[in-house]
Design a protein around this nucleic acid. Structure first.
Lengths: 340, 340
DNA sequence: CGGGTTATTCAAAGCGATTTCAAATTTTGA
DNA sequence: TCAAAATTTGAAATCGCTTTGAATAACCCG
């Protein structure tokens, strides 16, 4: 069923039918109703490719992922949020996976040249992200999830990682802890650097010296966290508190604590960063987990919204959002027991 | 940079340039090289929309997800696999999320009418899946991840859920367990029904009566599993073994076991189904987890491949794959201790 | 040397929508 | 009543590619 067929069926021109369906004012109200009704009855939908070619808009946004490492639980939650927002606008999300940084760069060039998408969501930025520079050069609109230090105006949404970790660290210090482990993300990633800044700021505000041995940088998996935590728990004096970068990390640390014969919330405290996974609830853990919380799904939704604003012409320089992070105290964090 | 520009730049017709780039035989080898070299140098890429309109192929496959519940860790792993395979063919994956079954059905109609995709991946089927019937009616090629009992030929790939659970159950029975809990997926879903069949078959083969109180049907989240397991551990006599439907479920059961003051692998055994998440390794758990294992990422990859075969003309009736599931025994499952 | 292949190139007609520009009809107002 | 304005419709151009059918150039062989 093409527009042409529909038009013939109605005894009208393609022009009029097209206008009627797209809400142009210069079409008789009775005609419009007749067209709309018939189109609905016959299940007509414009051919996506033709529409895109004619309008020059692709009606899609792109998301490029380095498959193995990036398409994990964080990304799927984010995607769920973004997709929810875009779905109502009939914009679809094109997911491309690549295996390396070089491939990722190539993918952006390909996407730009072939005009596959109207905009891109850039994520997991480094402090000076070359991909952002490149997308600017390619003149393809994008919203960054996170932040990067480049001079040109970039639309972004980020959470206050520095503030979150600073507060969590300060809280642990208030409870008497002095040997606090920070299990952070990979070096170079903006969010990890920001968290480190918060951690160091809290320590220095209390005059507690920084011990590099108490800091780990790694991906957020149960397994790596377990190994790191295990090693750290063997140190003497032993660390008494952990800041876990994600809930996956928290699971690994938890395991290490238990294996060391210690009890979480009593012998060792932990505050984890919670991106809010529906299938892994901090409140229902045993003991329940203290967290710095910020819904990554919400962020995805909002970024969808920002993309729409960007496409509607809002300048990137006006699109900056820094979200606060809540500190939710539960059973896993408690006062330091007698220091021995 | 359009084809026309490139052609003018080369002093050739669009026809010749197009043919040269698409590998048609009737173009002089020297010309082809010149075209290819220039196109690469200028970074020419055909406009995706134009190409799609001209060829009638959209170069995309669709995946419709009921957002909140379905876009979880399983789906993202699956997506990673599929996307990896499709990426090398320059076919992109369009992810659409919907909020309800009705919306899902509407989404398929929309997608079909607008010819947005060349094929669809259908997942999480029920025993008699109406969506499959509908996609057949709409004449849109699709591969089913899982199985459904409809008469017409449907391309599918599934794992042997029945066999997996039957073996796991039999193994636990061999170890002396008699009160074995099955934490299964939602009623009606094919995989859950298949698992139940395997469970019942194993029980009946040993003449062990089936106790409905030992079976739970729910989504696979840590939280729900915790509650179910907690309730079941209060039964007397207490169940001595659990079959957990997923790793998330296993985490919840684990928590309930610990909270009840019991020890996994000694007081209570567990075998979990492992879809192989890179961030949650059964081998590295403590104690390590016995599993029925099948990589959902591999399945995604393979389904990508099957889609390509389907698009190449292979009849759906010839596309059926049933994958065996390994039983990997580790520390979480052990012999029944003295029955008291 | 000339007719018949073969190899190579091109002009133009699609693909299915939107949109410009013009035409036909109706309404308005003096 | 009639010219001007407003309303409503339509023919044809356009988006950037592929592909058909035709044309030209080069080659072959008796």
């Amino acid at each position: 069923m093409r527009l042409k067929d529909l038009a013939e069926h109605l005894g009208l021109s393609q022009t009029t039918v097209s206008r009627a369906l797209n809400g142009y004012p210069e079409v008789n109200e009775a005609t419009r109703r007749r067209v709309a009704e018939t189109a609905a009855r016959l299940g007509y939908r414009p051919n996506a490719s033709a529409l895109r070619l004619a309008t020059g808009r692709s009606g899609a946004v792109g998301l490029v992922l380095r498959g193995a490492e990036e398409l994990g639980p964080h990304m799927s939650e984010f995607l769920a949020g973004m997709s929810g927002r875009m779905g109502t606008e009939e914009i679809d999300i094109i997911v491309t996976t690549v295996d390396s940084y070089a491939e990722e760069v190539a993918a952006y060039r390909r996407i730009a040249a072939s005009q596959k998408v109207d905009a891109i969501v850039l994520h997991s930025p480094t402090l000076r992200d070359e991909r952002a520079e490149m997308l600017l050069d390619l003149k393809i609109p994008f919203v960054l999830h996170g932040r990067t230090n480049i001079d040109k105006p970039v639309a972004w949404l980020d959470i206050d990682n520095t503030g979150a970790v600073e507060r969590a660290t300060s809280h642990l210090l208030d409870l008497g802890h002095r040997r606090i482990v920070l299990l952070n993300g990979l070096k170079g990633r903006t969010f990890a650097e920001h968290r480190e800044i918060g951690y160091l700021a809290a320590l220095s505000a209390r005059g507690v010296p920084f011990d590099p041995a108490l800091m780990g940088n790694s991906v957020f998996t149960d397994e790596v966290a377990f190994r790191l935590a295990q090693a750290m728990l063997e140190m003497r004096p032993r660390p008494t508190a952990f800041l876990a970068g994600s809930m996956m990390t928290a699971l690994g640390v938890f395991r290490a604590i238990r294996q060391a014969g210690l009890e979480l919330g009593r012998d060792v405290s932990m505050i984890a960063h919670d991106d809010v996974f529906p299938y892994l609830n901090a409140d229902n853990m045993y003991p329940s987990m203290s967290t710095t919380r910020s819904s990554i799904r919400q962020a995805g939704m909002r970024i969808g919204e920002l993309i729409l604003q960007l496409l509607a012409g809002k300048p990137p320089a006006d699109i900056h959002e820094l979200w606060p992070v809540e500190l939710v105290l539960r059973e896993s964090s408690g006062p330091l027991l007698d220091t021995r």
